[in-house]
């Protein structure tokens, strides 16, 4: 009973204890930066390419068999005759590489160097550069689209190399590009060699990705579906540099005056049009067309329209 006052005191004190608020704390205060769809940071290098045949010269293509047939009169039984019967040429292009293949935001139309080259192919088959259906492909989708025959031809800043020759056929080289580096204009990066440990944006399935992953300075490749996604990441400070062919970089730099292209070309990236492996007659046809475009100044005028004063066109090499 003598403990009673103590017990009462404890109970009174417990009753007087402050009641905490039930309101939840302010959550989610940390910023979550938005990212493009399907961004992947590559911690391990992509799987090593299959060993190419020792004799491979990737720039050597199939020799034309003769002069071009007149438009609308493709030889019976040829791939071109099938395309003609179909009524239009289905071309895999890019809509995100400014100046090479891009959508003009004002008209909504696809335009660029690659697109004009593709229209020349349509003109040679149908006599009409408009007899064409574009399918927009990401870098990664190019070879599967050809293998599954969803497109007749791919004209999309595609580098010819021995690994790809095993799955598709290439035309002769229609443009000679080389890989360089794009950085913000205040960056101290001078080229691929000073990007060790830094984040470099490339597209999935591109030869640029393999080149960046193989660079001796060991940059960290970050892959996205489209080249413009790389520019978004650079502008949002999520990557330190973009590295790919100088043509694509020039198109990106033209959209952002606060970037600069630095360093020398550290790889040669010869572009070819790609075809399904079986369509050799079509390859020979397009090579004959390219001979004509180089000779009659069409190549030079398309180059002038998109990429400035034209150099001498790339020389065709054949493997027969």
């Amino acid at each position: 009973m003598r403990r009673l006052p103590a017990v009462v005191l404890v109970l009174v004190l417990a009753a007087c204890a402050p009641v905490p608020s039930g309101a939840p704390p302010i959550g989610g205060g940390s910023a979550v930066p938005p990212r493009p769809a399907d961004v992947v940071e590559l911690t391990a290098p992509p799987s090593a390419p299959a060993v190419a045949p020792a004799s491979c010269d990737p720039t050597a293509s199939l020799r034309p068999t003769g002069p071009l047939p007149a438009p609308g009169q493709m030889p019976a039984g040829s791939t071109m005759a099938k395309i003609q019967a179909h009524g239009r040429l289905i071309v895999g292009v890019d809509q995100n590489s400014y100046l090479m293949g891009f959508r003009n935001p004002f008209s909504g139309e696809l335009e660029g160097f690659d697109v004009d080259m593709a229209r020349e192919v349509a003109r040679a088959i149908f006599g009409d550069p408009g007899a064409i259906q574009f399918k927009v492909l990401t870098s990664e989708e190019r070879i599967p689209a050809l293998e599954e025959r969803r497109v007749d031809i791919v004209v999309r800043t595609m580098t010819v190399n021995c690994e790809r020759w095993q799955k598709v056929n290439f035309s002769t080289v229609y443009y000679q590009a080389g890989q360089r580096v794009l950085v913000p204009s205040n960056s101290d990066v001078t080229g691929i060699e000073s990007l060790g440990g830094r984040r470099v944006c490339v597209t999935k399935g591109s030869s640029s990705l393999a080149n960046v992953a193989a660079a001796p300075s060991r940059p960290v490749p970050v892959s996205v579906p489209n080249w413009t996604d790389c520019l978004v990441m650079l502008q949002q400070g999520q990557v330190d540099a973009i590295s790919t062919d100088d043509t694509i970089l020039a198109g990106l730099a033209a959209q952002d005056p606060y970037t600069k292209v630095v360093g020398p070309q550290f790889t040669a990236e010869p572009y070819g049009m790609a075809f399904p492996k079986a369509d050799e007659d079509f390859v020979r046809f397009v090579n004959a067309l390219l001979e004509r475009l180089r000779a009659d100044g069409t190549w030079a005028s398309i180059h002038r329209r998109w990429l400035g004063a034209p150099p001498a066109p790339p020389v065709a090499v054949y493997r027969d």
Partner: peptide, 23 residues
């Protein structure tokens, strides 16, 4: 970007749409 004719505008729109759909 669209007003200046830059294709990167479409990439920003894709990023916006991804944010909308994923979060």
């Amino acid at each position: 970007h669209n007003r200046q004719g830059n294709p990167v505008g479409a990439a920003y729109l894709r990023e916006a749409s991804t944010l909308m759909r994923d979060q």
